[in-house]
């Protein structure tokens, strides 16, 4: 699911692809966990994510909580319309930083 990682100081950009659903979300959570140490700004590049289900939202929410607890931020970049619609429907647009 993670296609590339790019660290620039304390900013980490992670590019993803595929679908963020019941099947892939737990793996993403596991994969992200070890990368967050010392990161103040996490950017998830959603450019190649076709859709996201509530299981994916759960991972975003827990990641967001971890980042806030550590005084950092989470940004979702390049979300496609189908993904943005899900963020809007669920009110996630209000709590996530979209870029």
């Amino acid at each position: 699911m993670i296609t590339s990682k790019k660290q620039d100081g304390s900013t980490l950009t992670v590019s993803l692809d595929g679908r963020l659903d019941t099947l892939t979300a737990p793996q993403l959570e596991t994969d992200l966990e070890p990368l967050l140490g010392g990161i103040e700004s996490l950017v998830l590049d959603f450019g190649n994510i076709a859709y996201i289900s509530s299981a994916g939202l759960r991972v975003l929410l827990s990641t967001q909580k971890k980042m806030i607890a550590a005084g950092g931020t989470l940004t979702i970049a390049n979300a496609v319309p189908a993904v943005r619609e899900v963020f809007d429907i669920t009110g996630f647009s209000d709590i996530l930083t979209l870029a």
């Binding site: 289900s53 509530s54 299981a55 939202l57 759960r58 929410l61 967001q64 909580k65 806030i68 619609e85 899900v86 429907i89 669920t90 009110g91 996630f92 209000d94 709590i95």
Partner: peptide, 22 residues
């Protein structure tokens, strides 16, 4: 409740809400 902030928001029931609205 989809208006809660990230810290206080529980996950659950969102999937059904998404289906209903999509």
């Amino acid at each position: 409740d989809i208006t809660l902030s990230a810290e206080e928001r529980p996950i659950g029931g969102l999937g059904i809400l998404m289906v209903k609205k999509m």
